[in-house]
Simulated assay, not measured.
Amino acid sequence: MPQRSPGTALLGSPMLDRLVAEHATGSLMRERGTLYLADGQVIHAESPHTPGLDVLLTTGGALSPEEWSEALTQAGPQQRVARFLVDSGRFPEGALELCHLGALYDAAFFVLGQGGGPARFRRGVAHWLGAVRPVPVDAVQRETARRRELLTAIWPEEGTDTQPLVRTRLPLDTCLPRRQRAVLQHVDGTRTAADISHVLGRPAFHTLVDVRRLAAVGIVTAARRRPRPTAPARLPETSTGPDVALLRRIKNALEAL
């Protein structure tokens, strides 16, 4: 397997290696999303940080929301939604494979990346979409690592990937590319890169690239998180009288603020 650069922390390979060796079928769940395996290969991936295939297809106008809903109703229970879209003539097979591969890599970037938490595998779980074109696990890992390295080369701070985004006071460059301007229009202090991707119906990785480029030139930054309020100090309830030393320390601390 290719060497991974420092700082590229993926989901521990022993677990995935074992699932590949077992030709396992099921769902691998982490905090940031889920990988679906069939016979040890990745057939789908989902993450709350990325638009799903439904958003990518319907927002862009490739399918109407009604057509997508019909596919779910007709073929979802049999885990054959993708096959239904192709066989019914609603979507060309080659185009669907390309769109699905992009959505798969998009979600896998978060599932396999840093901060995803512990993994849990549920055997036998199938996805309602069905298999489109299975992808080897090592190919998904390599693509995840490549994307992480690319983003780090653009801007090393990862906070802009998941935290709400804010505009800085730096004036805009008139030569700012149209794609970055489209992203910037939705930076309002509450939306994350994932939110903006959903609004635009755009692959999340494309948005992450634009956001990091905007961060690199100082136009966008991650919003500062407000510190959690701390509970006020409580005096011991069992004391029969005031703790004079404690009260003096509290008084001095308040006066120092």
Results as ranks from 00 to 15, higher is better:
R248V: 03
S197N: 08
P48I: 04
Q41K: 15
G40T: 08
G26D: 12
E70T: 15
L63Y: 11
E93K: 15
A222L: 05
G201A: 07
L112H: 03
A139R: 10
H49K: 14
Q163V: 10
Q114H: 06
L247Y: 01
P65T: 05
S5F: 12
R213G: 10
L85G: 09
A216Y: 08
G241W: 01
I154Q: 07
V42H: 10
V183C: 09
I250Y: 00
A145S: 04
R202F: 10
T8Y: 12
A139V: 12
I43S: 11
A108F: 01
A107I: 01
I43M: 09
G116S: 03
C175N: 11
G117L: 09
V166N: 10
R4I: 10
E97M: 03
Q114V: 02
V217F: 03
Q41M: 15
F110S: 00
G189L: 03
A103C: 12
L165M: 02
G116T: 00
V55D: 15
L96H: 06
T144C: 10
G241T: 00
G115R: 00
P203F: 03
N252E: 09
P236D: 04
R226Q: 08
A216N: 08
F110N: 00
W155T: 04
P134W: 06
S5I: 07
R224K: 11
D195R: 02
R213Y: 01
P171H: 07
R169V: 07
D138W: 02
A126N: 00
M1D: 13
E157W: 13
P2R: 15
A216G: 09
D243F: 07
E22S: 11
A193Q: 00
V86E: 06
A107W: 01
H100W: 07
D39Q: 15
R249I: 03
G61E: 12
W128G: 05
T50Y: 15
T73K: 14
R123D: 00
G124L: 00
Y36L: 12
R167W: 13
R191S: 06
G201M: 07
T73V: 15
R169I: 02
F205M: 07
F84Y: 14
V209C: 14
F91L: 15
R147A: 10
T34C: 09
P118C: 00
W68G: 09
R122G: 05
A256R: 12
Q114C: 00
P164H: 03
A182K: 07
G130S: 07
D17F: 13
L112A: 02
A153P: 06
H49A: 14
T230S: 04
A45F: 13
R228Y: 05
H127Q: 00
P227A: 11
P48A: 05
A9H: 15
R18P: 05
P92Y: 02
A71F: 04
T50I: 12
L19R: 14
E237L: 04
H198E: 02
P203R: 02
E46L: 13
Q3L: 14
T152M: 05
H49D: 09
P92L: 10
V209Y: 08
L235W: 10
L129H: 01
R169S: 12
L200M: 06
A253G: 06
R142Y: 03
L208Y: 12
A24W: 10
A233K: 09
V140F: 01
R18W: 08
F91Y: 11
R146S: 04
W128H: 08
A182C: 03
R142A: 09
V244S: 01
H44C: 09
E31S: 10
C99K: 01
Q79I: 08
V199F: 07
